[in-house]
């Protein structure tokens, strides 16, 4: 065990090594580690926030979906009502149309009846006169009986 000048040599070496480590190594390594720690912490925090956001978005989506469903149901109901209404209206219109057509036909029929009646009426006096002429076998003054005949046909 010889203590000699090596002691000083070792002390100086030791001091230089520590100084070198302090100046050129330690700060850079610890800084890199700190920065990585920060990055990881940030990443974790961001992940947590994103998860929260996702949950919120999911909830919002559920609400929206529910709303859309109710709206759709409402729309369907409205449409059904509208359809029923349209059908009812169409039915009413059809009835009216039918009535109108029936009335028109009826009026035509009445007209036809009247026309036939008129024709018949104009013919009745002639037939009657003809019949009477044949019965009496002589001519009856048409002018004398004109009024009587007119009355007759008017009664018809």
């Amino acid at each position: 065990m010889n203590i000699n000048a090596t002691l000083f040599g070792q002390m100086i070496t030791f001091a230089l090594f520590v100084l070198f480590c302090m100046k050129f190594i330690w700060p850079f390594l610890t800084q890199a580690m700190r920065e990585r720690q920060d990055t990881i912490r940030e990443g974790l925090e961001n992940a947590a926030t994103a998860e929260k956001h996702l949950e919120q978005a999911n909830q919002a989506a559920d609400v929206e979906l529910e709303k859309a469903k109710t709206q759709a149901a409402e729309l369907i109901n409205q449409a059904r009502n509208r359809a029923n209404q349209i059908i009812e209206e169409a039915k009413g219109q059809a009835h009216e149309e039918a009535d109108r057509i029936i009335q028109g036909a009826q009026a035509e029929i009445d007209q036809e009846i009247n026309r036939a009646r008129e024709a018949l009426r104009s013919r009745v006096s002639d037939l009657a006169v003809e019949g009477a002429e044949k019965i009496l076998e002589n001519s009856i003054d048409r002018n004398v009986h004109e009024r009587m005949l007119n009355n007759l046909s008017a009664q018809l």
Binding site: I25, W26, Q31
Partner: peptide, 15 residues
Amino acid sequence: FLGIFLLVARRATSG
């Protein structure tokens, strides 16, 4: 020791 650590410290990445 210092050489290895210096090499690493020089190229130290926070990634």
